[in-house]
Design a protein around this nucleic acid. Structure first.
Lengths: 232, 232
DNA sequence: TGACCAGAAGTGGTCTGAGGACTTACGCTT
DNA sequence: AAGCGTAAGTCCTCAGACCACTTCTGGTCA
């Protein structure tokens, strides 16, 4: 087995065996090298690998630690790779978002939380009064994010956040001939979702969310050929 | 900005800008070091990071390449981290699987594919005639995997695969007092799913799949306190 | 002419050693 | 008791050397 792979397996084993739980500190690098039988270079490459996956965190001057192993945080690491996926793959991901967000929106509607409806309404008021693409994207993310969070499953929220972030690189709301029509359709979709949440109708909420995201999928398909995504 | 982060950003930018598409080859390491202004160690750590995320592949003696950037393959990389998530987080993930797999199962039922039903029936025949925990797990994965694949979205299949793989580390089917009852309930759940697919009833398929996975969630909850997962 | 094989060039993989940068904790001073 | 400087601990970066694997090239042999 290659040196880096050996180190990788050793580090994972230390976590999986329960020897080191969430937040625990690893021994210093020289000690780990000795324990795993690899050089410092190989060990560090293995640590970087697990760091990229959100399993390990290295803190300069302090030490190397097991992360919280929180599913939402780990899924958040997806954004580093998902942001590089071409449009073709983004459409597959959007189907995932559509299904998950319909579920979360229904769950949010089932809860009796008048404050949520009030906050969503405030966001939509802002959203409907702006034509700035960046602000639209930001407010749209806040609207959907609030709903998903109210759905009660942070993992679902993290997944939909990552996918929404990728889709956001494609600028649907560029000034152009269709801008007004697209904006109006989008605004109506948001109001339909809010109405279902306000009236506590989970089935209607799921349908409205699903339809809204399906509409986004259609707009994205129209954007082919694949434009270049903008990295943050 | 730290050296490794600088290299990481540079590599991602080369992909995001379209300079290097899926499958493209990076310049040799010394050239990249010069271009990015970092040492070879730092560059290699950055390459390992993107390698762990499934964005880059290094082939010994050949070169470093951009991966296919296929969403299913990228999601598959997450098994490395998901396998380390504690039970508490696995339950959140199972809700994701339940929702996605209900969707995929409905899609599979909507398709008119007699061959799928035949293959599923064969798998269930084997599954019902064994009591070996490892074989049960394997056949269960094949059953659900075939259905998800028939659903038509490889990304959904990859996600459910990863989550199912994590859940499989918890041995529900250990020989014990409840073994027979659990096995029978599980078998009945599978038959209900197959029946819905055979009769091409998407709604029934979604319900059956959702109920089946919800049952798994209940069994897992009963397993607390968290047992140690077994790495492959 | 074709297939096969050996060598050379190109490239990533690993190790070692050194010095720098940051965090943390200790002990001193006020 | 609070604040601060110092020292120890730890990770970060660089440089150079050598090894292992892949790929291509050229020659040899059937």
């Amino acid at each position: 087995m290659a040196a880096t792979d050996k180190a990788l397996a050793g580090l994972r084993q230390m976590i999986a065996s329960g020897e080191l739980g969430p937040g625990a500190k690893f021994p210093p690098e020289p000690e780990l090298c000795d324990h795993l039988g690899v050089s410092r270079s190989s060990l560090r490459e293995a640590v970087r690998s697990l760091g990229a996956l959100g399993v390990i965190e290295s803190r300069h001057g302090s030490g190397t630690y097991v992360s919280a192993l929180d599913p939402a945080a780990i899924i958040g690491r997806f954004s580093l790779s998902v942001e590089l996926i071409p449009l073709e793959g983004v459409l597959e991901l959007l189907e995932v978002r559509r299904v998950l967000e319909a579920h979360a929106t229904a769950a949010a509607a089932a809860r009796q939380d008048p404050e949520l409806a009030a906050r969503l309404g405030a966001v939509l008021d802002q959203l409907e009064s702006t034509t700035d693409a960046t602000e639209i994207q930001h407010l749209d993310a806040e609207f959907h994010g609030l709903i998903c969070a109210a759905g009660g499953n942070p993992t679902v929220t993290a997944l939909t956040d990552v996918i929404r972030g990728r889709g956001g690189h494609y600028r649907i709301f560029e000034p152009g001939a269709d801008f007004d029509a697209i904006k109006q359709t989008s605004d109506r979709g948001h109001r339909a979702i809010l109405a279902a949440i306000t009236t506590r109708d989970p089935a209607a909420a799921a349908t409205a969310a699903s339809a809204h995201i399906a509409q986004t999928e259609l707009w994205l398909r129209a954007l082919r050929p694949d434009p270049q995504p903008a990295l943050p």
